[in-house]
Amino acid sequence: MQITVNINGASETRDVEPRRLLVDFIRSDAGLTGTHIGCDTSSCGACTVLLDGRPVKSCTVLAVQADGSEVKTVEGLAEGGELHPVQAAFKEHHGLQCGFCTPGMMLVGSALLEENPEPTDEEVRWAISGNICRCTGYMNIVTAIQAAGGEGS
């Protein structure tokens, strides 16, 4: 069936099978490979995107369910050549090691800061609890998200 999804402000219209997963629509159809596939069983959060503003695991959403919706991926964080405050803070505070979980962590962090610009350590840890960093670099991820909040306020 034909669907149209607004990804990072650009309209993507494609014919897809109902079983097409949103993550594959983003990666293979729209060509945006910043969204990663990790566990493929909704356990790890590497495939996190914002669906109408809310973080979700795109391996566990059908592309047809996103018809008419707005999706934001890591490629949509920076605006006008300027890094998003969360991206700048991850760079500054070494919030990544291998980088595989990073797109999901930054999107969850950006969604948290929209609602709560100055989260506590515990609030950040709660927000990222569905995202796994297998390098176990959580301390710098938490620091980076908090720092980005501080800059925005």
Binding site: S42, G45, T48, R54, P55, K57, V61, W126, S129, G130
Partner: peptide, 9 residues
Amino acid sequence: VSDPLVRNR
């Protein structure tokens, strides 16, 4: 219930 991302959906 599960984790924050699953709870959103």
